[in-house]
Design a protein around this nucleic acid. Structure first.
Lengths: 190, 190, 190, 190
DNA sequence: TATGAATGAGCCTTCATTCAT
DNA sequence: AATGAATGAAGGCTCATTCAT
């Protein structure tokens, strides 16, 4: 066999792409990505068929990592509030720890180069965590509003919080996290 | 230089730009914008020095319109909750009425082609309304959290709601508006 | 109105393309064509949507010129042999006078970048001349072989002769022309 | 360096190249050739130094096969006409049996990637058959026209006939072969 | 020797901008 | 001022060839 495809090189390309897309948007050129990744311009296309493909894979990669982060084993006897809090905590911390990825996500979410298929797959990744939240909220939330409060507001509010966290000094992170969670928990009560 | 002759032509260009940027992002070509606007390719550059300039002007234009919408004369004897509700109501309605502009805003907010100067000016536009909200919330919100709840969450949650409203059937609009306001009002209480 | 599209520039591009395709085939780069034509690389695409389009237009242009050449007004009382000879004469002379175009034709005829539609149009150009030949040959040629002798052999033999003429010294041109015509005329007799 | 180990692999590459060049011209990529041949991309370059080298070898291979076909032992007491006919017969049949090779030949003949040296070698391959034809034609053809009729027209007319045969239903092959031979034989008579 | 990932020059095309009309 | 042809610097992608395995 010849030189095998290198996972390291693939990652270098994705990392370089993330770095550049975070600051310049999807307009970042494949040439610049190759340069930052330390590979030849053509090499990008042995790992990704097209630039759009690269963009979609990057989106998938980041969302998968985020979804992974949210898969939590709850302590026994934890109450609903604690459970949602644990997820919230993880979510915001992930954002604070991966500011570049957050910026990339914001860029890619509004890009028409991410296919509906990719979006569908990503949504599915969060299915489990989502249902966990729903079960934890059941009973204390108006059922008519449940979908909106979980699928739209939860993710949205977390994004907002992450954005705020990323540009804040570290000592305020916990405070912001608590503030947004409080708002969400109190606000969603029937 | 004096004001360009045709205000109508300038508007046509901005409208065309909005339409195209909403769907294709800032990558929409000046040629395509000119075509949709019904003017020659070169004409764009008699109204806007560069494409970036056009983008910034468009951003400003939309934000100005939105800020205008939020300038409300409150009924005498209206209570704080009612006041914030009125602003909320206007905000969401504006989004529902201007879905294209909302999409444009989402694109431009994450673009590095909008200068910090432009962003600064836009922020200033909302100063008055912002203070109005602050005065209405004073007393019932933890002062430490006030800034975060107003400057970050209010706008952010409104955006989220607008996005949800835009893709929903009309008969759900009021419901969503109420749901998000309830969440915000109850959630921000100390 | 702005600068009008320049027929001269279009011709310069086609001429440059012909020159380069004659020697390097359809692989001649658009950049090299632009350089030889004395225009910017981008200008090619204001005159031709794609390279394939340029290729097809070039093919059409050359074939049209050749078809024009073959539209002859015969002297009154000219006999069939003389008529076919006059066409033959024009055909070979055209080839001798336009060696570059001949080479281009040879390249483009075997290229899959010339569409069947273009080929159809070109065939139609020669319809009139073709029928003239058929009428002149009627009676002295086996009807079963007529199509083959006209549509396939006439054009083919002329091509062969032109190729030979192009690489021969001028004083042999008439000789070669006579030789191939004699072969054709005698050979096709029933 | 000695002969590469696998003659079969070399043939597979040449066959694949022929198949692809017949349809796409010399622009067929070495990668696509490797794929069709069932070998690795790099393997092509252990058998052929460059793509141009592969092209030239392919040309040589096909022409050699054709030349082989034309080496005929004539029946004793065969007259001149019969001899030329036998060669003609073989020539056209070879074309009908090898349509892909014919298309390749047409592509390569007009390509500047086939060196003059390769062309010289190929011409030499047909020397014997050519002289056979010349001897058979001697006496009944104008000596001044002999070279043109044999070196240019014979091969050219055969090509034309082959092209026609290849696109015709099988039951017309003999007819076309006779028609073109008749034309040639009668046409070349002094 | 065979493999196929890696390379980077080069290709066609797009596009913001300029400028002749 | 308005037009749209002209420009040439990128951009995404392909490909012959090299080279590590």
């Amino acid at each position: 066999m010849a030189r095998p495809l290198s996972e390291a090189k693939r990652d270098a390309i994705l990392t370089a792409a993330a770095k550049l897309i975070a600051t310049s948007g999807t307009g970042a050129s494949t040439a610049s990505i190759a340069k930052v990744a330390g590979v030849a311009e053509g090499t990008i296309f042995t790992y990704f068929a097209t630039k759009d493909n690269l963009l979609n894979e990057l989106f998938l990669e980041i969302e998968t990592d985020l979804a992974q982060t949210m898969k939590i084993v709850f302590p026994t006897n934890s109450d609903p509030r604690e459970r949602v809090w644990l997820i919230w905590d993880k979510l915001i911390d992930w954002g604070a720890a991966n500011p570049t990825w957050c910026k990339v996500l914001r860029q890619l979410k509004v890009s028409d180069r991410i296919t509906t298929e990719t979006r569908r797959i990503c949504n599915a990744l969060f299915h489990e965590s989502r249902d966990l939240v729903e079960r934890s909220m059941a009973g204390r939330v108006d059922p008519e509003r449940m979908t909106f409060y979980i699928d739209t507001v939860l993710i949205g509010l977390a994004d907002i919080t992450i954005d705020a966290v990323v540009i804040s000094p570290k000592e305020q992170h916990e405070q912001l996290k608590r503030a947004s969670f409080d708002l969400y928990w109190k606000g969603t009560a029937a």
